[in-house]
Design a protein around this nucleic acid. Sequence first.
DNA 1: TCTTAATTTGAAGCGATTATAAATTAGAAA
DNA 2: TTTCTAATTTATAATCGCTTCAAATTAAGA
Lengths: 146, 146
Amino acid sequence: MSLEERLVTALKARGKKVTPQRRFIFQALEKESHRHPTAEEILKIVRKTLPDVSLTTVYNTLHNLVEMELLRQVDLGEGMTRFDTNTDIHHHLLCKRCGRLEDIHRQFRGVALPKEDARGFVVTSHQVIFEGVCPDCQTTTPTLKH
Amino acid sequence: MSLEERLVTALKARGKKVTPQRRFIFQALEKESHRHPTAEEILKIVRKTLPDVSLTTVYNTLHNLVEMELLRQVDLGEGMTRFDTNTDIHHHLLCKRCGRLEDIHRQFRGVALPKEDARGFVVTSHQVIFEGVCPDCQTTTPTLKH
DNA sequence: TCTTAATTTGAAGCGATTATAAATTAGAAA
DNA sequence: TTTCTAATTTATAATCGCTTCAAATTAAGA
């Protein structure tokens, strides 16, 4: 089942409407997912096709998609939220100079919280964030973006 | 050397002034560090002693301390930055219901990025974030705070 | 004490996101 | 098909965490 079909299925299953806005937002997400776009970036792309979409609709749709588990939210303390259609478990590699973000599709053995460290928490997931400097930023003067 | 002394030393070493604001902000951080307070929380505490401190000063001081490596910034995508006087390498355990945050003082062997996954990045650090539900929130109805 | 650069302060500003309320529309029912 | 209505979209305003700015204050060396 294609992602687009999964969208329609998920929407109908919840009695939600299949609107052009939702279709195009989802398409943009799919196409740009590897770059982990922000809401603003998605808005810009969708407006090429639907010039009047509002930012509010983009946010609403993004939240819907997260709720329906077709989209994953990626928060790395950059000041904005990024989105990723890849909802499989994976980790991240962040360039602390330019913000470039890469997926790491690899399981790390040994990353489990021993009971004596868990303080009674029920641990449901974990995420590893690697930080460093990407190839581009290694060759340029450190002009920090954040 | 106590933390307070380390503060004074670090300030003097850089020709910075030892102001009451800086002292009290640092004291508040020390006392509250285990809870990983936010700037607003620190403001509230310091105002009990210095009713006229400004939020700007709190932010300034917080940034100074991070720069001087007496404080660590913790960004977990909650929408605000938290602070931690424990600057040793450690990981985190976050309650996704109430935001309670615990330090994990444990090294996870096997968390290293193989060259073929690094895409040419120079990796300088990594952080593991465990997510789950804390003991308190396990017994109460899921009323999400964020 | 005097001097001055560092610091503090309140106010204004900013970027990301959310709330609100009126207008529009998808899609079920007639 | 047309009608109806709840869901959706939109523009606008508001909020939140944080930063910038310029004027007033102050730590600390001479």
